[in-house]
Amino acid sequence: MIELQHIDKYYNIGTVNEVCLFKDFNLTIHDGDFISVIGSNGSGKTSMLNLICGSLEAEAGKIILNGEDITHQKEYVRQRKIGRVYQNPAMGTCPSMTILENMSLADNKGKAYGLQFGTNKKRIDDYREMLSQLGLGLEDMMGSKVGSLSGGQRQAMALLMTTMTPIEFLILDEHTAALDPKTAELIMELTGKVVKEKNLTTIMVTHNLRYAVEYGKRLIMMHQGNAIVDKAGKEKEELDVDALLNQFNQISIETGN
């Protein structure tokens, strides 16, 4: 469970451009939740993810993870339980290392990175099996550098690498936004599958309303640092893209966009 309690977040503090993003923002993410987060640019979606992951620090408030206060915990320490896939496919893989080396690197998460051989030969067949499930033919090119792969292939690998070791929370930061429609569809299918299989508590930020409606058990619409829509269960199932789009337009009129 992740709890955001009374979060205040300002940008450009002490300048004329000071902006208040969150003022007393509260959100509870229950175990097993699969939350789709939508909202216009600047509504606080990514800032919320950054606060949870620790790449941003709030001015006030607490972040509680499974009962433990992690408000001031370093980003890399939090990542033991959290896996994150970024919008940019380049963020989740190492371009100058081979597919096999990338898999080995990710497979060791949570353990010590000492002077043992980097690639465990006994695991190679398992890696090949995992890669073949992506259906992209990556299993036949394990010696190729990841930098030579396409964005979609890299994002599929990033998703696989993030979820191959036991984590509790999966953070998806517009992870299909940089992909073509067909690849985005594939990545979403893979995402749905892995979340279900591993029963991961997931927060997915997306600009694609259809994905937000189709996937996830709970939907949040952010606007100016508030969750103006928060629907779960049956209410969420009844939502459709048109209704959401209507709501979106209303917000846009209010803010003069």
Binding site: N108, K109, Y113, G118
Partner: peptide, 27 residues
């Protein structure tokens, strides 16, 4: 050394420091 786990991490940090953080290691 470059073939060890520690060496892999070293190669990763110059390539993409974000991934080292994602692997729960201090870049």
């Amino acid at each position: 050394y470059m073939k060890t786990k520690s060496g892999y991490l070293l190669r990763a940090v110059g390539d993409n420091p974000t991934i080292v953080t994602s692997l729960a290691k201090d870049s």
